[in-house]
Design a protein around this nucleic acid. Structure first.
Lengths: 228, 228
DNA sequence: TTCATACTTCGATCGTAACCGAAGCATCTT
DNA sequence: AAGATGCTTCGGTTACGATCGAAGTATGAA
């Protein structure tokens, strides 16, 4: 009966509501301080501190000291992927935490999934890239075509640069709100960064949602059209 | 702070050791009775009963009454996929439950992952299918080539039949012991079934391991060669 | 040095849920 | 009808861990 890896341990780590809230907050991709995470979890600083220590010991979180601040972030994108897949699963079974709140629509429209774009806009972007032939989709697998490489170079993304990283170039990530795939991997990250750099969008300080400027939204929708 | 789906709920379901053991036992693909699952979890029947009720309410388990027995199984292959991905994650972080026991080697060699073959042999099979060109791999995505279809027909598997199902034909599934991909999806299931039908292998009654007969093993290794 | 901020550790409380014994249903057998 | 088997529900105990107040440590500012 004692076979294989211990899924109970990490299940228990994620299973506490306060910890789950902190992890969800960290899905925004930004490193947060213990104080910020305590607020996200709805608990006091002391309690948060013990939770964070446990999460770190469990390999879910990485810590970086910087002056008298201590920044916490998800340990790597494997953690982000795991959390998103659990979210997808939970959403599919209707395990929603509460009725949709006021911030929910913004979150469904565009949000950060660890380091790439998710939500309606994230799904739309991948759809458009596949339709235009820039990305080939085979089942759950994605790859960039040669024409895709030149297309992407036009908007300032050097794919060959990204290829050199150990991390996969493209990966599909199941979107819990849309229940369809969006683009993850180093290319997904690079695209989102470029939107920030161009000033098309910015992160919301409080939440994981991504807010597009009117002009940025226009450009985005034009760059990634969908046939209707 | 209350955004999106409730990952804590399903984390907590998986986070209890007794429940985790029962779920792991059900990864063997067979439906088990409450009594069997109580043994797998190392708890009494009463306790198991309440756990099973919770897992069912959480959508992880499905129940089927048959006479005075009550059979439990994973609700669908989404649950299997989720559990395997958590196992992969846990194994990668070294969250092993104990030092390798006596049954561990057999489990690493060949085991059932919900309904398809995993472990060393599972990985070998996929590798071989990709090398021979029967399956095309693009990132994490897999698809059967036309020559692959005829190859598979030779060993008694009708791919076009499988295609009609709603379930994906091939899917890659991360193997926690090998930390590489093996073949899941309806094709993975069909292949494993055919090994059982041919008498090449059988399930171990106690564990998730798959036991090959000497002749079956010979045939398997010949059918799925690897270049050295 | 002194004070303030950021965080951790200690100590104690409290609530929840895991657990089992015993009793209660349901289904099959004889 | 009586008994056996498989499982659930009830009641009460117990233990673990989440929580916070208070004290302790580290870093930066004045």
């Amino acid at each position: 009966m004692k076979e294989g890896p211990d899924i109970a341990q990490i299940g228990a780590l994620i299973g506490d509501p306060a910890r789950a809230n902190m992890l969800t907050a960290l899905m925004g991709g930004k490193a947060l301080t213990a104080t910020e995470l305590a607020a996200a979890g709805g608990i006091t600083l002391q309690t948060a501190s013990t939770h964070l220590a446990k999460l770190e010991a469990g390999g879910l979180l990485a810590q970086r000291k910087q002056g008298r601040h201590r920044y916490f972030a998800l340990a790597d994108d494997g953690v982000g992927k795991l959390l998103e897949s659990i979210m997808g699963f939970a959403a599919a079974r209707g395990h929603l935490r509460h009725r949709p709140g006021p911030k929910e629509p913004a979150l469904r429209k565009a949000r950060i999934c660890y380091d790439h774009l998710a939500g309606d806009y994230g799904v739309r972007m991948l759809d458009s890239l596949v339709t235009s032939g820039a990305i080939n989709a085979v089942g759950e697998g994605l790859s960039v075509s040669s024409e895709g490489e030149s297309q992407l170079r036009c908007i300032g993304i050097d794919v060959s640069d990204l290829k050199s990283s150990r991390r996969p170039l493209c990966r599909s990530c199941l979107d819990w709100s849309e229940r369809r795939a969006h683009l993850a991997g180093s290319l997904g990250k690079a695209l989102l960064s470029s939107f920030f750099d161009k000033g098309w969008a910015r992160r919301n300080a409080e939440s994981r949602s991504v807010i597009f400027s009117p002009e940025g939204e226009r450009q985005f929708l034009q760059l990634f059209p969908v046939e209707t």
